[in-house]
Amino acid sequence: MNCGPPPGLPIVDATTPPVLVLAGPVTREEVTRLSDGVRALMADTGARVVVCDVGGLGPPGLGVVDLLARLQLTARRSGGRIRLRDPDPGLHALLDLVGLRFEVEGEVEEREPALGVEKAVEPGDPAV
């Protein structure tokens, strides 16, 4: 009797990336543990995106910014990225202030307009 893998492509549920829940104030030791967790999630699941639920992190501060920057760096080194779930508006503003851009769950991804698409010109518009 042969018990090899079934024929065809393996079934992969790419619509549900792994989730890492971040809660409470995070210490320096926990940053290392969480970075290892991101690396392990990506290696174990083969996912290229890890969702970080940041709703329970509390008030935003530079410690949270440092944590998220380190997690993003770890994910990038592993060939992926992190996506934030439920960020506080203050955290979102703080990340923008320090120049860190994160994909946020539920936001429409910004993309370049398609090539060959031209802006419509209305009669009477001045020539550019």
Rank of each mutant, 00 (worst) to 15 (best):
M1R: 03
M1Q: 04
C3N: 08
C3T: 10
C3Y: 04
P5H: 05
P5Y: 04
P5K: 08
P6F: 03
P6R: 00
P7A: 12
P10Q: 03
P10T: 06
P10G: 06
I11F: 11
V12R: 08
A14W: 00
T15P: 01
T15N: 02
T15K: 01
T15M: 02
P18G: 02
V19K: 11
L20A: 06
V21C: 06
L22M: 05
A23R: 12
P25Y: 07
V26W: 07
V26D: 06
T27A: 13
E29H: 15
V31W: 01
V31S: 00
V31Q: 00
V31H: 04
R33L: 09
L34H: 05
L34G: 04
L34P: 01
S35E: 05
S35C: 13
D36G: 11
D36Q: 11
G37M: 00
V38S: 00
R39S: 09
A40M: 14
M42E: 02
A43P: 07
A43I: 10
D44H: 13
D44S: 14
G46E: 07
G46C: 07
R48K: 11
R48C: 09
R48H: 13
R48A: 10
V50R: 09
V50Q: 10
V54R: 03
G55A: 08
G55Y: 03
L57Y: 02
L57E: 00
G58K: 03
P59N: 02
P60N: 01
P60G: 01
G61C: 06
L62M: 14
L62Y: 09
G63Q: 04
V64Y: 03
V64T: 14
V64H: 07
V65K: 08
D66G: 13
A69E: 14
L71H: 07
Q72R: 14
L73N: 09
T74F: 03
A75K: 02
A75W: 02
R76F: 06
S78K: 12
G79D: 06
G80W: 05
G80Y: 04
R81N: 08
I82R: 05
L84N: 07
L84F: 02
R85G: 05
R85Y: 09
R85W: 08
D86H: 15
D86C: 14
P87D: 07
D88A: 08
D88H: 11
P89C: 10
P89W: 12
P89L: 13
G90M: 12
L91N: 14
L91H: 13
H92T: 15
A93E: 15
A93V: 10
L94D: 07
L95M: 11
L95V: 06
L95K: 03
D96E: 13
L97H: 08
V98T: 09
G99N: 10
G99Q: 06
L100N: 12
L100Y: 12
R101V: 15
E103L: 12
V104A: 11
E105M: 15
G106I: 13
G106W: 09
G106T: 12
V108E: 15
E109S: 14
E109M: 10
E110L: 10
R111G: 05
R111I: 05
E112Q: 09
P113S: 06
A114I: 07
L115I: 11
A120L: 15
V121M: 07
V121N: 00
E122T: 14
G124V: 00
D125A: 13
D125S: 11
P126V: 04
V128F: 12
V128C: 03
